[in-house]
Design a protein around this nucleic acid. Structure first.
Lengths: 334, 334
DNA sequence: TATATTTAGCGAACCGATTCGACGCAGGAG
DNA sequence: CTCCTGCGTCGAATCGGTTCGCTAAATATA
C-alpha cells in the first residue's frame, strides 16, 4: 500500500510538501503539484484514514444513533437514516451507524474513542439517558426529536403541537364535532416518546377550546391487535365523523381494514394522519396528512452538526428548531 | 483527554505495560494489573480509535454497502441492515454504512483508506461493478446475493431457485394447474438483480416439467401502478386458481386490493409469496410464504467475514452458501 | 549445581499522516 | 544597495497507540 512517503519519493519532494499539495493549505508551485499528482495517480495513493484522524483530530465520520425498537415500526425510522446518510455524504462525511440497546454506553464509547466528529441522535425520549452523555462529549451532537432538557444541544423536530392544531382546526372548520384520535401505543407514551404527548395534548387542548368531542385512543403496533383495537374504537363511537391517526403501524393497516369493513373515505368517515411522502408511497396511503419531513429534518441536523464541527466556537447558541407542519390534502376529509 | 501515557504515569509503569495489561497479550502481575485498572478508571481512559487502528492495522469497523433504490421497497432492505448491524456489534465491530450511488467508487474509497476491516455488500447485481473492486481490496468481503462471478468472495443468499420449486411443487400437489406468477418490476430484472431471474426461471422450468400453465407477469413498485397491474393480471386470467407473488411492494398492497375486489383467500384464489417473518409482521401479511431469512443471512455473512479478518489464510476456500427456503404455511393455499 | 525456561516489565521503533517553524530565494519598497 | 515580504519547500515534532527485542529475576529441568 502506497504511503505519503512513497508519493514524496516518487515526486522527488518531502512528505510535508505532498501533504500541503493535497490539502491546499499552503501554496505549492504548479510544476511540483503536477509531479505530485502524477505520483499519486501512479501509485494509487489514498491517505490512511486512521493516520489522518490521529494527526488531524478529524475522522470525517458522523455517528448515527438509533434504536430498532421491536415495538416500533421500522420503516418510519428509515426515512431519517436515509436523509442523514445522504446529507452527510454530500458534505464528505461517512456514517457510523450505532444500534446498540444501551445507547448511552454506545455513545460514550464512540465519542470517547474519537471514532466520530459529531453525532446525530434519533428517536429522542423525554428524559433520554444519551443526552447527558452527549452534553459532556468532546464532539457536538444534534438531536432529531425534542427532549425535556435540550440545553446545550441542537434540536430539530416537527412541531407536533402545531400539527395537531392544524388538523383539529381543519376538521373543526369543516364542521366536525365528534372526532376520534388514535395515538401510538400506550407503552410508547410511557417509554417517554415526548412527541406523542405533544401531539395528543395539543389536540385535546384545541378540541376543548372549540368544545369538540375528541375521543382519545391508544393503538397497537402489531397485528392482530391493530385490527382488534380499530374494531373496538369504531364500534364505540358510531357517531364520530372524523378520525385522526397518529400511529404508523395502524395507518399502514388502515386502508385494508376500512375497505373490509365496508367503510369508504371520506363518505363514511374523514381521515387525517401524519406521515412523510415516502412513507405514504411505500404503504400506498391515500390519506390527507401532515408531512413529517424526515428528509428536511435529517438534512438540517447534519448541516448544523457540520457547521459546529468546523467552527466550534463561532457556531452560536444551541438551536431548537421546529419544522412547521404542512397539511397535504389528499381528499380524505370533508 | 487521557492517553495511555497518562495511565502509565499514574500507575507507575511504562506505556507498553499498560498496553499489554489491557490487551492481555502478555502476562502482567496481578498487582500491576490492579494499579493499571485503577488508573484507567481514575482517568476515564478510552483508547483512541485512530491511533489504535494505525498501530494495529485493525479498525474494528465493518463496511455495509447498500443502495436505496427509489424503485425498490426500502423496508425489505432494513431487515438486512438490522441483522448485519447487530451481528457485528455482538462481535465487537461497528458498522460504517455506505449508501452512495456510485457503490464501486465508495467501496474503493473506504477500503483503500483502511477505514474498515471488511465489507458486507447488499443488493448484489448479476454483474456488479463493486465485485471487482472488492476482489482486489486488501480487506475481505461478504456478499449477500449471488453475482455472476463470485470467485474469490464469500456469498450468502436464499436459494431462490429452490424456493420457486418448493412453491410450484406445493401448488401442483394441491391440484393447481393454472397459476399466475407476479415478479418484481421489469426494470429490476433489467438492472441485473439476478435473484429475480433465478426465481422466475426455476418456476417456469418446474411448471413446464409438470405441464402446468404458468403465466408470468411483471409488477410495479408504486401506486397507483401496482393497483392497475394487479387489475390487469387478474382480469386476464379469470381461470387461474393460484397466485405466486415475488414482489415486496405488491404483496404489501395485496390484502387491501383483494378485499376491495371482493376476493377472499384461499376460497377464490390461493396465494403464496416470499417474505421474512418481520416483513410480514410489519405489513400485516397473512400469506403462506417462503421465509427469506434476512436475519440468518446477515448473521452468516458477518460471522464469515470476521473469521476471515482474524484468520486471513486459514479461513479456507471462498464459500457460496444458499439458505434453504422454508415454506411457512399460513393457510392461504389449498 | 548448572542450565533452560518462564514471567514481568521496559525502551524504542513504528504505524502514516498533519503541521509548525525555519530557510533560501525572488521581487518590491525605501 | 539594503531590508522586507511572500512564496515554495524541507525537516522535525506530533498524534496515541501496538509490538518487537531485550533484560533480569524467579522457577523449572537435568
Amino acid at each position: 500500500m502506497a504511503t505519503i512517503g512513497d508519493v514524496a519519493r516518487e515526486a522527488g519532494v518531502s512528505r510535508s510538501t505532498v501533504s500541503y499539495a493535497l490539502s491546499g493549505k499552503r501554496s505549492i508551485s504548479p510544476e511540483t503539484q503536477e509531479r505530485i499528482r502524477a505520483a499519486v495517480e501512479n501509485l494509487g495513493f489514498t491517505p490512511n484514514a486512521g493516520a489522518r484522524a490521529l494527526a488531524s483530530q478529524k475522522t470525517m465520520v458522523l455517528g448515527l444513533l438509533l434504536h430498532f425498537n421491536a415495538d416500533e415500526f421500522a420503516p418510519a425510522m428509515m426515512q431519517y437514516v436515509m436523509s442523514v446518510s445522504s446529507a452527510a455524504r454530500e458534505r464528505g462525511y461517512d456514517i457510523l451507524m450505532i444500534t446498540e440497546d444501551d445507547g448511552a454506553a454506545a455513545l460514550r464509547r464512540v465519542t470517547e474513542s474519537n471514532m466520530v466528529d459529531g453525532v446525530v441522535l434519533l428517536d429522542i425520549h423525554h428524559s433520554d439517558p444519551r443526552i447527558e452523555v452527549m452534553r459532556s462529549a468532546r464532539q457536538p451532537g444534534a438531536l432529531i426529536g425534542l427532549p425535556a432538557e435540550p440545553y446545550g444541544l441542537d434540536v430539530f423536530d416537527l412541531d407536533f403541537g402545531e400539527a395537531a392544531r392544524v388538523i383539529v382546526d381543519k376538521l373543526y372548520g369543516l364542521g366536525h364535532r365528534d372526532i376520534m384520535l388514535l395515538c401510538p401505543p400506550k407503552h410508547v407514551f410511557d417509554r417517554g416518546a415526548a412527541y406523542t404527548w405533544r401531539f395528543r395534548d395539543a389536540a385535546q387542548e384545541r378540541a376543548a377550546r372549540y368544545g369538540i368531542h375528541l375521543h382519545t385512543y391508544y393503538g397497537e403496533s402489531r397485528q392482530p391487535a391493530i385490527q382488534t383495537s380499530l374494531e373496538a374504537m369504531l364500534s364505540s363511537r358510531p357517531d364520530a365523523t372524523a378520525l385522526i391517526v397518529h400511529n404508523d403501524a395502524t395507518i399502514a393497516a388502515l386502508p385494508a381494514f376500512l375497505s373490509n369493513r365496508g367503510m369508504s373515505v371520506p363518505t363514511d368517515l374523514s381521515v387525517v394522519s401524519l406521515y412523510s411522502k415516502e412513507f405514504g408511497r411505500d404503504f400506498s396511503l391515500p390519506y390527507t396528512a401532515v408531512e413529517t419531513s424526515p428528509g428536511e429534518l435529517g438534512r438540517m441536523a447534519v448541516e448544523r452538526l457540520i457547521q459546529r464541527i468546523n467552527n466550534p466556537d463561532q457556531a452560536g447558541e444551541p438551536l431548537v428548531r421546529f419544522v412547521a407542519p404542512e397539511l397535504v390534502d389528499r381528499g380524505t376529509v370533508r
